[in-house]
Design a protein around this nucleic acid. Sequence first.
DNA 1: TTGTACGCGTTATCAC
DNA 2: GTGATAACGCGTACAA
Lengths: 320, 320
Amino acid sequence: MANIREIAGLAGVSVSTVSRVLNNHPYVRDEKRQAVHQAMERLDYHRNLPAIHLSKGTTNLLGVVLPSIEIPYFGNIVEGIAEEGLKHDLQLVLIQTNYNVEKELEALELLRGSLIDGLIFTSRAASLKIIKEYNPHGPIILCEDSDQTDLPSVSIPHEKAFMDGLDYLLTKGHTKIACTLGRKQGTNSHKRIKAYQTIMDKINQPVREQWIFDKCLTIEDGIHLTENWCRMTERPTAFLVTNDQVAAGMVLTAKEKGIHMPEELAILSFDNQQIAKAMHISTIDIPIKQMGKKAVQFIQNTEKRSKVSLPFQLIERATV
Amino acid sequence: MANIREIAGLAGVSVSTVSRVLNNHPYVRDEKRQAVHQAMERLDYHRNLPAIHLSKGTTNLLGVVLPSIEIPYFGNIVEGIAEEGLKHDLQLVLIQTNYNVEKELEALELLRGSLIDGLIFTSRAASLKIIKEYNPHGPIILCEDSDQTDLPSVSIPHEKAFMDGLDYLLTKGHTKIACTLGRKQGTNSHKRIKAYQTIMDKINQPVREQWIFDKCLTIEDGIHLTENWCRMTERPTAFLVTNDQVAAGMVLTAKEKGIHMPEELAILSFDNQQIAKAMHISTIDIPIKQMGKKAVQFIQNTEKRSKVSLPFQLIERATV
DNA sequence: TTGTACGCGTTATCAC
DNA sequence: GTGATAACGCGTACAA
């Protein structure tokens, strides 16, 4: 692989001149520029990225931490990140964690090691304290409804959204309401639980721990949930669930079992993916892709990083 | 940021010794090793990745080209790649292309620029000729049913699988069979079309161009397809479709319209995702994740790279 | 077992 | 406009 020095030699100029034409600097006589181009052509020259990265101290690489790429919610965020990243000429380094703190630390080490210029957490398991320690090495953005402001964050107001969802179920006559979460320990889930407790208090209903279902993320989970529901002695009449996938699983199974929806069992979910529309599932729309885009914008704008809350919207369909 | 030289100075050793403890080389006296560790601790030393990459000429970074992360098929491949990559300490650089050749070229340039050690195409739009030109710069793996063997490839035998699917529909009494493709220009789609022509010839049916539906990938596409089907003057009685998403959209809409399945309309799809099981969609299982894993193994094994065909399996359910 | 010196390929500074 | 030359931070022959 030819390097910049060989080009300089062949073109009869200095390495600095070669570097100049490489980076489209002005102040290079046209003849020399031509000569350099010819030399590059002849030797099939192409720049070495790690060398540039070392020299410049930046890489145009953006790290993205996500638990699993197969959960549409995260896939959508990444899509948004990719789309916006494209505009800023950023490549994406994906770190799949399965909520493993060790893996998240690896991602943070990539930041400290200057391999990536910034890092976006679509979700996290590591503590804020630890993550903040890495902030000096580059911008870190959280995709969660965070209370702190040291680290910029992008999210919908989850507590408000969950309360709105519950209120909607209330107006439809439900008081026995259960809910599902993706991961109880998550920040967003905490907000949702809080909202749940608030509303249950308001309507003088006990907070039944067994009505808060953890680790519900997929269609399969939804299927099991409805099966579960059938076997329960005291049954909720409505569910506010993690996402459209869980709702889809629930609805499909409910229909098979001849459960009347929404009379016997009402379901409201989050996200508003294609599947929700196709199955007429009532859901709360989240601008997921937009979150990813905003996160990248935060990476780019050194100045006004902050906590941003995006709007959500309740979509009334047939399952409530 | 402290560098290796400062550590050497503080620890009272040479840079090579520091490098040795950094890389767990033998032949370092314990006292010196301790001293180095202490110095690293005190200065909060951490290695600079681009520098290592430049010096070693490799990065442990693996490029992954994919059209869209939102299509479950590609997400699954990436999942497999990530899982296997983990074992080999590989990080993933994602290049989302939307089948844009320009973007694929960018990915190839990353390979030439030594930013990534290898590249996996989950799908491609660029010509084999162009891609092959980049092979000298690092291993390139294709996730497609390729006829050539210069570039290693991982896939199921698409032609065989499609023929098996069509045969299955035949045994169920269907002769008027339509099919859908993700992208007509794709290698896998070519195989599928070929199989389609072969079988149609065999049963003396014309190959109706309007019964080969292109650009069908999502649930929405499936919905439109069934709506379309209703408006057709001459209707096929069976569809062999791109993937489970398209099938799901078709089935949902068919049920709503009171279309009798599988009598009036039979649907067989590919992939066997969760949604297919949940909706009892007959489908042809593809070991997608396994493909990703195998691709990574090809990247690692310098020697026996080749063309590998993974097994598929027809899953009988309720839509045929 | 340890240290010196050079190479990796590029950018940036400064003098001309 | 142009060219030396010093960084950038690390790995590694080679010598000792």
